[in-house]
Design a protein around this nucleic acid. Sequence first.
DNA 1: CATGAATGAGACTTCATTCAT
DNA 2: GATGAATGAAGTCTCATTCAT
Lengths: 221, 221, 221, 221
Amino acid sequence: MSESKPLFDEAIQNLLESLKDEKDMTEKQQRIIASAIEIIAEKGFNGSSTSEIAKNAGVAEGTIFRHFKTKKELLYALVGPMLIKFASPLIMKDVIRIIESEAPAEDVLQSLYENRLDLITENLPRVKILMQEALFHPEIMDSILNNLARQGRALGDNFVTERIESGEFRPLPTNGITRAIFSTLLGYFVFSQAFPEEKGEDDVEVIIDILLNGIKERHGD
Amino acid sequence: MSESKPLFDEAIQNLLESLKDEKDMTEKQQRIIASAIEIIAEKGFNGSSTSEIAKNAGVAEGTIFRHFKTKKELLYALVGPMLIKFASPLIMKDVIRIIESEAPAEDVLQSLYENRLDLITENLPRVKILMQEALFHPEIMDSILNNLARQGRALGDNFVTERIESGEFRPLPTNGITRAIFSTLLGYFVFSQAFPEEKGEDDVEVIIDILLNGIKERHGD
Amino acid sequence: MSESKPLFDEAIQNLLESLKDEKDMTEKQQRIIASAIEIIAEKGFNGSSTSEIAKNAGVAEGTIFRHFKTKKELLYALVGPMLIKFASPLIMKDVIRIIESEAPAEDVLQSLYENRLDLITENLPRVKILMQEALFHPEIMDSILNNLARQGRALGDNFVTERIESGEFRPLPTNGITRAIFSTLLGYFVFSQAFPEEKGEDDVEVIIDILLNGIKERHGD
Amino acid sequence: MSESKPLFDEAIQNLLESLKDEKDMTEKQQRIIASAIEIIAEKGFNGSSTSEIAKNAGVAEGTIFRHFKTKKELLYALVGPMLIKFASPLIMKDVIRIIESEAPAEDVLQSLYENRLDLITENLPRVKILMQEALFHPEIMDSILNNLARQGRALGDNFVTERIESGEFRPLPTNGITRAIFSTLLGYFVFSQAFPEEKGEDDVEVIIDILLNGIKERHGD
DNA sequence: CATGAATGAGACTTCATTCAT
DNA sequence: GATGAATGAAGTCTCATTCAT
């Protein structure tokens, strides 16, 4: 990892704190969070009113502001835990172990995809919100870039470099391959979200097949 | 094209009409459109106020509503022309010609990517708005699905089927390959938008290289 | 008539002038007036927009303001002629002749009712507007009071006094009888307007019959 | 009563509910209602702004919309209770008792007038609003027709028919007499409202005297 | 802690009126 | 004279936020 001292800005600090809270939350707070996730995922942050969120959560409107100073802080409390889950040392160690294993690339990627996709599909509405609102809230975008993206990029580059050196991958630009891996994943995810009815059962496997087949070197194949 | 009678719903009808208008628009209308594109692309539809759009366009707020009955109609006037440009018969013919040519897949995809990417990058803010707001406005999503997606899917499947039959592509599921092509494109695009600073010069080529290498059959390679 | 010098205030002056105009009006002006009558009678003055009136008249919105300085002046131009028709010396002479005739009260009232009801039913929408808007525009109410009401009251009192003196009417308070005559008329009119479906053929005659039967002295009946 | 199942339409249902509320209203709600009555009676519904009503009530404009979803609902909350008071079974029983008594018509009508006039003069501004706005809001007019008018008409016709049969009233058309009674009352009321300065002390009595004298049979008089 | 009435800034929209063409 | 685009004040209504209970 080239960036060993990620700049944890204030936003992330708050997010970290709210993560800690999420386990100690009262039942009302959890209902508010759940309600907000549901509604904001459907209508967007600016399209959702605190009154609707409160009603849907079965609490008084004022109760929201007892737990979250502002509406925006409620948003942070939704997306923060996602960022932290993705980037948490605990989970990151798993990722690092997978990536640094000597297993064939197929297995590594497959494990990686599964690992990430589980996280994503379990938290789909939150991820949707995270991706949507990152476009409008620079501080969220910065958190993603400073944490997920940077780490992911570093890990990916390491992985790709090693595999190229070992002769498993074709000697294309490292950057390009890393980007290809990530953007294929991202594209697959966005595509399935946008056009759910088009989705087939074994699409993931076909796409990984194609991706790896495209990346890997052919040894006397 | 399997879908020879695309369902042009009411929304699209309105959009078509507004496209025609775009060339006859007065200077004020164009200033309003330009201002709205700028602001909505940055803050989202719900995050942008008509008063800000008006101020930025240098017109009175009331003037917006002389030209666009509601704020939503202004949105349609922004995204409509994009849909129409993408789906217009004129341009579609180009696409069909490229796809149905006998050229090697590399050239076909390269032309296709360039053709589409030009359209996209020339209208980047509009495309951003289109993609973002489609998530919150079902009628926009429907227009995309009923027009772009359906056509694209049909064209792609034809192309892939032919290439598999001719032995150029590996005999993977047609659907999967088509989806891989589109989602790779989409992923590349979303990725470059989300993390512009990460973008390299020849990324497109690397990605196409990988994609095709992954898809194509290896003949005694 | 006790009040021989009616106070013609400024409002009435304007109304008089607009009456003169009504005959010299261009076709557009007449279309505007006709359109305004139609729409304001249905929706009230404040509920009608100049743009709707213009559209309905087939003229540009600006054209209204070329002919009527303000929207209110347009209202005056609608109701003014009514006031003047009701109070104009020409027509007043007719009324005076009817009232001062020696004919039996039945004939006098019948003539009077017919004379007034013709005027009213021929100009029903204007009369509706006049009555409605008088409640909200004191200057219109003043015009009515200073002209119609005062004259009508004076004429009525004279008529009633004479008939009481001649022994045809019962010696009730003059005021009361006059008011009874007018308010019966008014009630009949308002009632028929409010509940048109309840209206019978010969209602007027029954009501006059009752009214006069109630007022007249019984000579050896 | 011929119409034993009055059609209580949705509007009336809402009105009924709002009546129940009127007693449980908070002080602010009552101030809003009082302020709205005052201002709308003077300027009409369309001529009154919610901001003026709020200012006059000493509350924030938003407070109005916390208690009444729309401006129109505020109007309903003003006129509804009137309709209900007039038509409420409790009061209707009084009316029926009066009308079905065997007392001479003078006493019946006098009691009736007093009973109704009290109700009206106690709620004069509301009644004014009710009558004015019924002209522009068909749903209000319908409520009046379906409730007050229908009931009143049925009661009146019964009363008149009985009195004609008993020989107390002249054998004129029942309809006509009923209409005469109501429209005389209405005319008297409208007249006094329109020209308050003309009003004398004992006008009601004179008018009832004339009305009844006109309706009643003369027995060897 | 929780409530929900109250707030007032600000959102979208309408409208009477003006003015260059 | 007629037009209709442009205006900006004012209208109705929503909303995040506060605070007394």
